[in-house]
Structures are given as C-alpha cells and as structure tokens.
Design a protein around this nucleic acid. Structure first.
Lengths: 235, 235
DNA sequence: TTTTCGCATCAAGGATCCTTGAAGCGGGGT
DNA sequence: ACCCCGCTTCAAGGATCCTTGATGCGAAAA
C-alpha cells in the first residue's frame, strides 16, 4: 500500500506530434508520473528494450510503421496497460488495437482530466491480478472462471448442475459429503431431502467422467451416507 | 513448506474406551503427531478452551452428553477438521455429525492405516483455504463460486450467459470492451461477429441491473466500439 | 427533411436442461 | 429362497434459456 504511493509510475509516451507530446509530458509530470518519450516506432522499440514502463500511451498514427505492430509485439511479452491515442474517424484501427489488448483509448482532442482519469484507472486495474482458480484431482481439471472441465487433457461438457456438483466434490476431495450437504450446496436449502435428484445427477456425472476408458471410478458412494470423490492414489 | 514438516500437527483424541484411546495415541505418536486426550465431553471442553488442536478425533458415544453437542459448539468458533469415530449401526448420528461439519468418519473397528490416511487427508485439506473470489463494483457484488449476484444487498438472478457477460465486465471495470472481445469471452471464438446476440444480452442485463430505482446506468455504450462497465463515481 | 446506420427492445421457435416417475439391480435380513 | 431397501439407470413432460427475426428509436449524414 505505502510503496504504491511513494513509487511513482513510469509512463512511456509514444507520439510524433510535438504539441500533444509536450502536453502529455507536462500533465503527467505535474501529477508525479515519470515520463519517457518516443517520437517514432523505432524509438519506442529501443526504449522498451531498455526499460519496460508501467503504462504506455500510444499514438496510432506514427510516421514510421503503425502503432498496431508495436502493440502486437509488446503484447507477446508484457501485459502492461496501454492507452491508445487516436484521431476522430479512425474507428477501425482503434478497435483493432483494443482487440489486440489495448486497455483504453482517448480521442483527440481530449481533456487532461479525462487523460488522468484513464491513466489512474488503467494503473489501478493492472495491479489486480486474477487468482488462477483451478482445481485439480488426478487428471481431472476444473476451471472456476471459464467453467471448463478437462479430463486427461480433453474437455468434457457438463450441464450447470453437473458442474456445481463436481465443484462441490473437488473442493472437498477425499471427503465424505452427505446427501444433505450436496443438495444444500448445489440445489439450495429447499431441496435438502430430495435425494433422488442427486442420485440422477451423480449418475450422469459418472457417465461423463468415466467415458474415456472406464477405468477409474472418481465418485465413490458411501452407502447410507453420501458420496466421496476419491484421490488418484490407485490403492 | 518447511515449517509444515517440522511442526508436528496437534491432535486431540476424545474417546472414553481405554483400549481404543490407547491405540489412537500410540499410532499417532508413532507418526510424529502430538496427541492430547480426553475421556469425556467435559474434559474435551476444558482441553479445547486451553488449546485448540489442529485436528479433532471424536467418539460419538461419550458417557456424558453427546459428541454432537460438542461438535456443534466447536463449529461456532473454529473450522479445524474433525474426524468422527462411530460404531456400526449408528448411521443417524454419524450423518448428523457430518452435516454439522465433521470432515470424515471411521467405523469401529478400523485399521490403523485407514486412520492415518484419513488424518493426513483432513490435515492437507485444512491448509487449502479458498480464495474469496468476490468481485465488487459499487453496490454490485458478484460471487464467482456461488454464482450469485447481489445489487444493493438483495440478490438478482441472471441466466448463465448474462452471468458470464457481467463477469467479463466486472473483471475489466471502467475499461472499454469491444464487441469482439465480449463475444469471444462469453460465446467463444466462433461467435466473434455476431454482435446482435451481444446486444440482446446487454439489453437484458441492463434491465435486471437497473430494476430497483433505475438511477445508475452501469453499462455504458461506446458507439461503434463496444461497452464499458462504469465505476460508481457519479460524475 | 429525408435517409441511413447502429443500437435497443420485443417476441417466438427451437434447443437444452431439470425434474420426476418407473424399472432394473444387488446385498442384507427374515 | 424370498422380500426389502437403497442405489443405479432410463425415459419423458415440462420449464428454462438461447437465438434469431422484426420493429422502434435517435443521431449523423445527405
């Protein structure tokens, strides 16, 4: 927290037009950003090779080569936020840049307030990295964010209920889960006694999980109690 | 990593039957666990008040009061793993204990190998705490795990596609997302050009997000480009 | 003013999924 | 040997959701 306030962010401005470049430098410097400058694509490349900034302000209308190419090559290595500067009417290029991973854009002429707001927002976002919510159990992998499940490499498709059910299992590997617990987790408080619907879904889930060779039995039933997702130790 | 191997786990054994209690103590001590013992519910309470162990081995058939009550009161404060010891036939009590949050159970007579395996599994699980995957934007809250969305406190129900769409927005707050980016994220590579389906879903999403008072407009349209989820600074 | 284009909204056919009933199966108890 | 009970599996009606077409709307261009 403290270090964020002391260490000023480093911004690289890539812009060939002097008045605009100067405006950017002055505005940003006045707010305690460290600013480097580049007038051409080439200069930008050498600057990036020397030091990677915390944020890139990129004009798309550079004299030598398009900013698009610079963005593409930057994105192959770094994930720093990039804000595009574009002129009115250059919609196509702007969208192309955004699709390539640019974070935001400013259309000339822009207000300094808006510039600073976008810079702040971009820097704030770049600090929040996503937790790689990925659960694994043997050759089973469950991606919380993408809602994808892969078994021994290739993807298998689950219905929403099946996914929730498997999620409950994978967050409690090798642990007994009672019928009530599973029903409460997946279907909610009101379904706690409907064990039939649970059995049907466990059945369907098993069919999909055992499809490749039918060897391993992931879900073990605990008679009279519930189910358990076995760990991959082939005892 | 290292500390986990040096510091031995502390296990509290609550069991009135001497032979079993002794077997547990010997077996666990031999594998470098620190073992405390209690013969009655009362003893267990005082022991827990003094020091909370890393794991609790709990016999359900205690002479004074049921182990169930002990478990219930323990769960109001601590989340340590609990393994139940039960006799054959006491299914009802066993299930009740599991529903209350017990992690596992052993049915007497049990093998020492199985005991150790369950203890290891329970301790391993207790170390993996779930990341509270919760995204917020103003009075909008999105819970990745439960797939719930709340707006100013009360829950709103979204369809799967709407949820994915909102998730994409909330992971990129205040950032322009092009049509292509959103379509790729929610529908997949094949739908990148189908902007109509995106518009319909944005429309439906807006309706649900603005329902309470219709004041704030969360999703802003960027004409010709895409959409943007606004931050809650009411500029 | 009229036209045009992108966006918003409504509505319905069709696909997917969920629930529930019914039947099959196997082990334990009488 | 028979029955009972819980678990598994199959199948279909019904609910939900997704896609797509049609229409309305507003702003910019002609």
């Amino acid at each position: 927290m403290i270090s964020e306030r002391i260490r000023t962010a480093n911004v690289l401005v890539v812009e060939d037009d002097w008045p605009i470049r100067h405006l950017l430098k002055v505005s940003l410097s006045a707010h305690a950003y460290e600013v480097s400058e580049a007038e051409t694509c080439k200069e930008a490349f050498t600057s990036l090779a020397k030091q990677v900034p915390d944020l890139l302000l990129l004009d798309l209308g550079l004299p030598d080569g398009s900013g698009i190419e610079l963005l593409r090559r930057l994105r192959q290595e770094h994930a720093i936020p990039v804000i595009i500067l574009s002129v009115q009417g250059a919609e196509t290029t702007k969208i192309e840049a955004l699709d390539l991973g640019a974070d935001d854009y400013l259309t000339k002429p822009f207000s300094v307030d808006e510039l600073l707001a976008r810079v702040r927002a971009a820097l704030r976002r770049s600090k929040s990295l996503h937790a790689p919510t990925l659960l694994t159990c043997g050759d089973l992998e469950l991606d919380l964010e993408r809602r994808h499940v892969t078994l021994a490499g290739h993807e298998i498709s689950l219905t929403p209920n099946e996914f929730s059910l498997l999620m409950a299992f994978m967050r409690n590997q090798d642990r007994v889960l009672t019928h009530r617990q599973l029903l409460k987790e997946v279907w909610g408080e009101g379904y706690v006694d409907d064990s039939h619907v649970l059995r049907v879904n466990v059945c369907n889930l098993r069919r999909k999980l055992n499809s490749p060779d039918g060897k391993r039995n992931y879900i073990k039933t605990e008679p009279g109690v519930g189910y358990r997702l076995c760990l991959p130790r082939p005892a």
